[in-house]
Design a protein around this nucleic acid. Structure first.
Length: 514
RNA sequence: GGGUCGCUAGCUCAGCGGUAGAGCACUCGGCUUUUAACCGAUUGGUCCUGGGUUCGAAUCCCAGGCGACCCA
């Protein structure tokens, strides 16, 4: 019998640790028996959860003479002399394989090695296909009573301890595939994430919103206060920036005649990493012509409660031990009133910055030396005193114009804009406003931004001339909104860290030392 | 950026100045109703890296790496 191992592979095996070498040897033995350790296909007729559901009422000890064919990964092996129980896991769940030496040998064309092969050449981690009948064992475990089987993929590396599992968070993030194999709740989170984004898309599509993709690579990143990633285009010989928002392009689409547009896509911000920040994350932004920020707050309520109701089946959720009631309508309160409520200071009454600063200091607002306007001071006071208290869903409205360069001036309150942010569990969850449609005003706001950038503000941006030109052609009255999908999923799936809702979060490379 | 904690066998962990350990997994033997199967035997190590102190360092000290959490 010829070996398929080349000398270099053999030396690799010899140099490998025993665990891998042992399994490679088993794969080779399979080949020598004329069997393929890496099969091409397997006809699957049933999945574990289907069988568990369908035969939930099958009494212990009874067999159903139906033929089922399943496939999955071996998660546990309990092997006796002439009998074995394997736990097989597929995408839907687990089911036991009841492996009886006599039955397997009879049905597999009197193959007297078929059972021994299972005992000797399979390991936890291997993929196996199995056909047989359905039987609930004497001990009450629903099983596939196997008639024949095939090893589909030989696994070379051992899975984590079946009892303690994989708990090392670093390893879980670096080798998410292992995390997914052994931690069912992790699979569940990503499945829910997919359902949430699907529900959001369905909600918007049903209301005639059109999803349009806008550029990730841009010559100037704008639409938010954030530092961009810089990359380089070889043949154009120029720096390009990864987008920090989708806002300015989506509004161009509204100028172009799309009255309802949105985009769910990846955003990149060159900032620190924390339990709430990953350098790349997913946002949804949507724009609706002829509406204002009041309309959008109502839409946001639906956009969040519909998926919640659909996927969780309730609006009474729990986040890290805190009870959250998502039942709309949600409280709406202006930023000024919220700060007044919390501190007793009414910032709208001040006519000078000095007056406002001393009042702020008197109630313990810190680090206000850099605030160059009452509006910025109000925002600082809000962040320091109110934000963390907003546990139940709350819309904070009517923001200072200085910190909202793309929002429309308030129709009745000078110095403010028609903007809202949604807070849940003390975190900013969504941000929306009646869009600034006056191109002259927009140019002036951009110029103020550019001045801040020139003064050293790394999160400020230059004038986007083409965007101003688009506004000059005319943007209808429009309301827009942006929301972090990752944070929404964290909320709905009760995840403490953003890394729990991103399949492959950014980590520094591991130093292997080899 | 600052602070606290962690890094020891494939996994989960103990050991805290004197010969590197346990459980599970692996390997071998036994076993036709197990489900953390069981019984017996065996195997497995860059104690994150690099310096230092010491007769002797996984352990103490310094620097660095990676990660977690908290703060900014």
């Amino acid at each position: 019998m010829q070996t398929i191992f080349t000398p270099s592979i053999l030396s690799f095996i010899m140099a490998s640790d025993d665990l891998r070498a042992t399994r490679l040897e088993k794969a080779e033995q399979l080949r020598q028996q004329g069997l393929q350790p890496y099969a091409y296909r397997w006809e699957v007729t049933h999945q574990a959860a289907m069988l568990q559901e369908k035969y939930a009422g099958l009494p212990a000890g009874e067999e159903v003479e139906v033929e089922v064919s399943i496939a999955g990964r071996i998660m546990a092996r309990r092997v006796f002399g002439k009998l074995a129980f394997f736990t097989l896991q597929d995408e839907t769940g687990q089911i036991q394989l009841y492996l009886d030496k006599k039955r397997i040998e009879v049905t597999m064309a009197e193959d007297t090695t078929a059972f021994d092969r299972l005992k000797q050449l399979t390991d936890v981690g291997d993929f196996l296909g199995a056909k047989g009948t359905v039987k609930r064992t004497e001990k009450g475990e629903l099983s596939v009573y196997v008639q024949n089987y095939q090893i589909l993929t030989k696994s070379l590396l051992p899975l984590p301890d079946k009892w303690h599992g994989l708990t090392d968070v670093e390893k879980r993030y670096r080798q998410r595939y292992v995390d997914l194999i052994v931690n069912p709740e992790v699979r569940d989170t990503f499945r829910k994430r997919a359902l949430i984004t699907a529900a959001i898309r369905r909600y918007l599509n049903d209301r005639n919103f059109v999803e349009i993709e806008t550029p990730v690579l841009q010559t100037e990143a704008g639409g938010a206060d954030a530092r961009p990633f810089v990359t380089y285009h070889n043949t154009l010989d120029m720096d390009l920036y990864l987008r920090i928002a989708t806002e300015l392009h989506l509004k161009r689409l509204v100028v172009g005649g799309f009255e309802r547009v949105y985009e769910i896509g990846r955003i990149f911000r060159n900032e620190g990493i924390s339990t709430r920040h990953n350098p790349e994350f997913t946002s949804i932004e949507l724009y609706q012509a002829y509406g204002d920020y009041n309309d959008m707050m109502t839409l946001v309520e639906e956009l969040i409660t519909q998926p919640a109701q659909e996927i969780l089946g309730t609006l009474q959720i729990s986040y890290q031990g805190q009870a959250i009631d998502l039942t709309p309508p949600w409280r709406r309160i202006t930023m000024n009133d919220a700060v007044k409520e919390q501190t007793g200071v009414d910032f709208s009454q001040f006519s000078s910055l000095e007056e406002a600063k001393s009042a702020a200091k008197a109630v313990g607002i810190k680090a206000i030396d850099d605030c160059d306007s009452i509006g910025r001071l109000l925002n600082e006071a809000f962040e320091q005193t109110v934000e963390a208290t907003l546990i139940q869903p709350t819309f904070i409205t009517d923001y200072p114009i200085e910190i909202s360069p793309l929002a429309k001036p308030h129709r009745s309150q000078p110095g403010l804009v028609e903007r809202f942010e949604l807070f849940i569990v003390g975190r900013e969850t969504a941000n929306g406003f009646s869009e600034l449609t006056d191109s002259v005003d927009q140019r002036q706001r951009f110029e103020a931004q550019a001045a801040r950038k020139a003064a050293g503000d790394l999160e400020a941006h230059d004038i986007d001339e083409d965007f101003v030109t688009a506004l000059e052609y005319g943007l209808p009255p429009t309301v827009g909104m942006g929301m972090g999908i990752d944070r929404l999923v964290m909320l709905l799936c009760d995840c403490a860290s953003i890394r729990d809702v991103i399949a492959f979060p950014l980590l520094k490379p591991e130093v292997t030392g080899e």
